[in-house]
Design a protein around this nucleic acid. Structure first.
Length: 313
DNA sequence: AAGACGAAAGTGGTTGA
DNA sequence: TCAACAACTTTCGTCTT
């Protein structure tokens, strides 16, 4: 199969320079041009088939497989057989009353058996919630799978008892995001979930501590790609902003400050340096910090980075 | 008019006693 | 548990382009 067949027509070529040299970052949900850096598709859904070869060697190229793919997004991993609700046989003919009664009993037992344990009933509620949050945050299916796997670990450890399923699901989303450096803030997650920021923060900390998860401290750098993408800024601006943050880090000008504010300020400066200006208000909007904070941060950055004020005229 | 600036007062989180 | 503290927000008047 030709690789380009699965990619929609509009993101095969760069709109800006016409180059076909594109970078498909399915984890971040972005498609950007390697030549001019234009972000062509931000937070796109991962439309690619999850098929993979089951041979020992990947080189065989044989992607055939039998049955539905295994997925954590269905609580029994999608491996069970469903008894159809229609009273028809395989050829579409109606079945007799005796058989029909038998089918009715089978369906009843299937639903009882499938959702028998409280563990599974919990997952039946939790998985759709986790999927919904991931979808609203434009996260890919792979991320959603990881969230569900983590949720199952939390459930096994007994931490869900006494806490709301929604809160745990949202917390798992946030943890997976921060572990994969996907640049989603606590605010963003709480906005699309059914719980408040405070409860989410508390719940997420409990899970992190109890499961001894090592989530690296979210750094300002982690937010740069997401913010740049939202503002349609090139990878040039992005690289420069990352460079600014790194320099500021070395001079210890970033400790104790909110990483989102630093990221926003660095992008603000970078956008001016590169000549694709974005306003403080635009930066404030995507980063969920105020213009005042961006102002304070960028003034500080200018000092430690030795950048001329003339860039802003 | 839009964007940027900065002062002042208020808010919420962290830390250490 | 509480106070102290730094970071951040909100609001608003002023300046600059």
């Amino acid at each position: 199969m030709d690789e380009e067949d699965s990619i929609p027509e509009n993101i095969v070529k760069c709109k800006e320079c016409g180059s076909r040299d594109l970078n498909h970052d399915t984890d971040r949900g972005e498609v950007s041009c390697n030549q001019c850096g234009l972000v062509l598709e931000e937070q796109s859904l991962d439309l690619g088939a999850e098929w993979r070869t089951f041979q020992d060697t990947d080189a065989s190229g044989d992607r055939s497989r039998v049955g539905a793919p295994m997925t954590h997004l269905i609580h029994d991993k999608g491996l069970s057989t469903d008894i159809d609700w229609r009273n028809k046989d395989y050829s579409g003919k109606s079945i007799g009353s005796k058989t029909r009664a038998q089918f009715y009993r089978m369906r009843k037992w299937q639903s009882r058996a499938r959702n028998s344990t409280s563990h599974e009933r919990n997952l039946v509620k939790a998985i759709p919630e986790a999927r919904r949050i991931c979808e609203q945050l434009k996260l890919t299916k792979g991320v959603a799978e990881e969230v569900v796997m983590l949720y199952k670990r939390v459930l096994d450890s007994g931490l869900v008892k006494g806490r709301s399923i929604d809160a745990i699901a949202a917390s798992c989303v946030y943890i997976v995001c921060s572990r994969n450096k996907l640049g989603r803030t606590l605010d963003e997650v709480s906005k699309v979930s059914r719980i408040g920021r405070k409860e989410l923060a508390r719940c997420y900390k409990t899970i992190k501590n109890q499961l001894r998860l090592k989530t690296e401290i979210t750094k300002a750098q982690d937010f740069v790609p997401a913010f740049c993408s939202k503002l349609h800024l090139s990878t040039k601006v992005q690289t420069r902003a990352l460079d600014f943050i790194e320099q500021a880090d070395k001079k210890e000008a970033t400790s104790g400050k909110s990483p989102t504010g630093i990221a926003a300020a660095a992008i603000y400066i970078a956008s001016h340096v590169e000549g694709t200006v974005r306003t403080q208000r635009e930066l404030a909007e995507v980063s969920s910090v105020t213009e005042v904070t961006i102002r304070n941060r960028y003034k500080e950055l200018l000092q430690v980075l030795d950048i001329e004020d003339s860039v802003f005229s």
